[in-house]
C-alpha cells in the first residue's frame, strides 16, 4: 500500500510540474489541479497509512489513526478548490481581453498603456 500511495503522489507531482511549465493557460491550470491532488494525498499519508481504524474516540475501537492530517487535507482541499476556480476565471478573462492564452508576458508594446 505504501508503494502504491507513494507512486501515486510521485506520478501526479511529476505530471503536475510538467504541465505548469507549459506556455498555455489550460495545461497550466490542469497542472495546478494535479499538484493539489498530489499534495492532498501526501498530507493524508503523513498520519501513516492504516486500514479500518477509527479517527475519533469510539467505545469499540481498539486502535486509532491520526485524525489531524484528515483535518489538514480538508482545509487544503477547500483552499485549492477555490483557487482553481479563481485561476480558471482569471485565465478566461485574460484570454477574452487579450485574445491570447499564452502565459508569459511578452515585452510590452511601447504604445500600449498601463493605467
Amino acid at each position: 500500500m505504501e508503494a502504491l500511495v507513494a507512486t501515486a503522489v510521485g506520478v501526479m507531482t511529476a505530471v503536475g510540474v510538467f504541465l505548469i511549465l507549459r506556455l498555455r493557460t489550460f495545461p497550466v491550470v490542469l497542472g495546478t489541479l494535479l499538484l493539489s491532488y498530489a499534495v492532498n494525498l501526501f498530507l493524508f499519508a503523513t498520519g501513516r497509512l492504516y486500514i479500518d481504524r477509527a479517527p475519533i474516540f469510539t467505545e469499540a475501537a481498539r486502535a486509532y489513526t491520526d485524525p489531524l492530517p484528515q483535518a489538514l487535507v480538508l482545509t487544503a482541499i477547500v483552499i485549492s478548490f477555490g483557487m482553481t476556480a479563481v485561476v480558471v476565471l482569471l485565465a478566461l478573462g485574460a484570454y477574452l481581453d487579450t485574445g491570447t492564452d499564452r502565459i508569459d508576458l511578452a515585452r510590452q508594446d511601447d504604445d500600449e498603456d498601463v493605467t
Partner: peptide
C-alpha cells in the same frame, strides 16, 4: 485591463 490580468494569471 488585458495586460494586468495576464500578469495576474502569472
Amino acid at each position: 485591463g488585458g495586460q494586468r490580468i495576464r500578469a495576474g494569471v502569472q
